[in-house]
Amino acid sequence: MILYILCFILLLVGLYGVLTKKDLIKIILSLSIMGYAANLFLILFAYKNDAIFPILSESAVQEAMVDPLPQALVLTSIVIELGITAMLVALAVRLYQKYKTFDITKIRSLSG
């Protein structure tokens, strides 16, 4: 259970960054931290004691394997995360070009 709690703390660290930071880059980094925590949480569920990875091999005998389903889900999740990061970076670059700053409080006060 301690692992679940530590993983949740990691998620909360990301949430703290999203809520308090004013720097757009720091907000993007916090979002990716939250993504790491969510992925790790799913994989922590999948682990089984004394089991091996879910890939059959030609020689070895059939052993107990970990749950392959969360691994498949997280595999797609990681790729989507990278796409989101790229899109956020593009947005941030465009905002910087328009407002000459990454500070979201200043961006809010500037109009047009």
Partner: peptide, 26 residues
């Protein structure tokens, strides 16, 4: 450690890629 080598490979590569994007942009 959690017996997910597929994910380890993909996460490793994507992390490198994300760092390159962030450094190039910012």
């Amino acid at each position: 450690f959690l017996q997910a080598p597929d994910l380890a490979i993909v996460q490793f590569l994507f992390e490198i890629f994300a760092i390159i994007i962030l450094i190039l942009a910012f």
